[in-house]
């Protein structure tokens, strides 16, 4: 079975700064891949490269068999990739419902609409008219995920969705991931919480200083291996 997303020799540059060095990653249809690594390892840069929001990349980004590395962000989104960005990046002065609708405008039409998002996150449906900036951190994260789901992606990129949230809220958010998967969505999860990343994913890839230092099925890699590749010991 061929990969849904395949990165071959991906490099990311910010001006003269070389942030991601020749990364190869692949993610199959229906799979959840977790991408872990220390701060500054290049995880967010990799996700932003996939969605087309870094100043300069080289290498190949293949999605559903096609090289998309020359396409614009809106084109990539309408071909089926969605990003839940680091730090949520909501529209603070728009209501929850408007934030969600934005995803509907930029993505594909499909089985997920407002009703489905409200069903997945009932907490949001009670506050449709509330401004996003007045929400709690956990609710904001739900809006960010909901907005990406509204794009009806085949591949969902989640950048540290547990950042700054209480363990209870993190558990709540992670409980809905299997339901998203039921809609046939593949996922790449960037996580700091290694245990959570391993339990939620089929495969894991670890980044160290812009390179992949370890990759394998989540059930097979050991904690020692991860610790070693995480800190480069």
């Amino acid at each position: 079975m061929s990969a849904l997303l395949e990165l071959r020799g991906l490099n990311v540059f910010y001006g003269a700064f070389h942030s991601v060095h020749g990364v190869d990653i692949s993610c199959r249809e229906g799979e959840v891949l977790s991408l872990i690594g220390a701060n500054g390892a290049g995880k967010s840069s990799t996700l932003r490269a996939i969605i087309g929001q870094v100043p300069r990349v080289t290498g190949e980004i293949r999605f559903a068999g096609e090289d998309i590395s020359r396409r614009t962000t809106p084109e990539r989104i309408s071909s089926g990739i969605a990003l839940v960005p680091e730090g949520r990046q909501l529209f603070p002065n728009l209501t929850i419902e408007e934030n969600l609708k934005i995803g509907g405008y930029t993505g594909q039409k499909g089985s997920i609409g407002l009703a489905e998002v409200y069903e997945i996150f009932p907490a949001l449906s009670e506050r449709r008219k509330q401004l996003a900036r007045l929400l709690s951190g956990g609710q904001q994260q739900m809006v960010a995920i909901g907005r990406a789901l509204m794009m009806n992606p085949r591949l969902l990129l989640c950048d540290e969705i547990s950042l700054g949230l209480s363990p209870k809220i993190i558990a709540e958010i992670y409980e809905v991931l299997p339901r998203i998967r039921d809609h046939g969505v593949s996922m790449i999860l960037v996580e700091q919480d290694i245990a959570r990343a391993l339990s939620a994913s089929d495969h894991v890839a670890c980044m160290l200083e812009g390179r992949i230092s370890l990759a394998g099925p989540s059930s097979e890699v050991s904690r020692e291996q991860i610790a070693a590749s995480y800190f480069g010991e």
């Binding site: 989104i77 529209f91 408007e98 934005i102 930029t106 993505g107």
Partner: peptide, 23 residues
């Protein structure tokens, strides 16, 4: 209108607007 919501979104947070693919 959807157009209006998109216009208000780019006014509100242009960086976020790029990440979600608004033109």
């Amino acid at each position: 209108t959807g157009l209006g919501i998109q216009i208000r979104a780019i006014a509100d947070a242009p960086a976020a607007a790029k990440l979600v693919g608004l033109r």
